[in-house]
Simulated scan of single mutants.
Amino acid sequence: MAVVAWIGLGHMGGPMTANMVKAGHSVRGFDLSAAALDAAVANGVQAAGSVEAAVQGADVVFTMLPKGEHVRSVYFGGSGILAHAAKDTLLIDSSTIDIESAQAVHDAAAAAGFRFVDAPVSGGMSGAAAGTLTFMVGGESGAVADASGYIQPMAANIIPTGGATTGQAAKICNNLMLFINLASTSEGAVLADRLGLDKQVFWDIASVSSGDSWALRTWYPVPGVVPTAAANNGFAPTFTAELAHKDIGLAIAAARSTQTPLEIGEHVQQLFQRLIDGGQGAKDCSMIVSLVDGSLPAPGASKEPAAGAGKE
């Protein structure tokens, strides 16, 4: 079994490390949040007091962080991973970040003599807990193959995507499609209700017809239809509106750098911005339905969903 260093123990990193511990690996974790670190320790992770302490003697280092700026800060500088990990340590970043930051870490790691792969994930917090994530892994083929062996306890699918940054490219394009699907699912669900269709009957039709999507089957934004939907729990987050806004923004930035028009994507980003402006950024992204059914609380109102939000 391996010695694993893990930097970033939040909503995704916490359950992912729990699965690594269950698989028999020795996991040392570091996070700036004491609460996140304590939760990971309760699941068998050994607490480290710094990035340097976490990576000492590790066979592999995973990072799972919110943004490119955080990844850069953890890898670079005198207290970073590249300064303190052994050169034979495999480096795996599973954050969802911008292409430029991913390329910068690839370049710096290679220059310092490290093997590095970008390996973002799809599947959300439920997939992290269940060990059923999809990993999209970009980098040199030998490093990708070795990374796959470490990733297995956390994954249902491990898909090599090609060279450096292609994992991130796959992730941001996939999430772009997801959030557009979520917005269209919300509009269809509300319109079907207002046309008098039973919510379950309509879902049964759409889920086996051309309106089907992962968003419809997993995140349907109407309570009482799909067990995994946040709509059943007051839109408690499985994937926050703030993160959705960030991720679709990554796709838009990449599109602008490649002169690719994303008119629908830009509109959906604006919808998530309206949720954030309405004080609902920490709620589940499927609360986008409140912009269709009119239940979004007014700015300054309670951050709890309005009565009947997302309902028929």
Rank of each mutant, 00 (worst) to 15 (best):
I252A: 14
L250G: 00
R72N: 13
W6N: 00
I248L: 08
K199L: 07
G14I: 00
E100K: 13
V21L: 07
A309S: 15
V190C: 05
G281K: 10
N232V: 00
A130C: 01
H11E: 13
I205M: 14
Q103G: 08
A83V: 02
G113I: 09
G249D: 06
V71S: 14
G142L: 09
D107Y: 01
A85V: 03
A111D: 12
A119W: 04
D198H: 11
T238G: 15
K283W: 03
A42L: 02
S286I: 09
D284K: 13
N174V: 11
V208M: 12
M154S: 08
V74H: 04
G163R: 06
G10S: 05
Q280S: 14
P261H: 08
G123P: 09
A156I: 03
G77L: 01
P15A: 03
A251K: 06
V4H: 02
P153Q: 03
M64S: 15
K303H: 14
V60I: 14
P160Q: 07
E242R: 15
P223G: 02
P237I: 08
S209K: 03
Q56V: 13
L197R: 09
V137W: 06
A34I: 05
A307Y: 01
L216P: 00
I205T: 12
N157Q: 12
G127C: 06
T260W: 10
V41F: 02
T161F: 08
V55T: 10
I252D: 06
G10Y: 05
K199W: 05
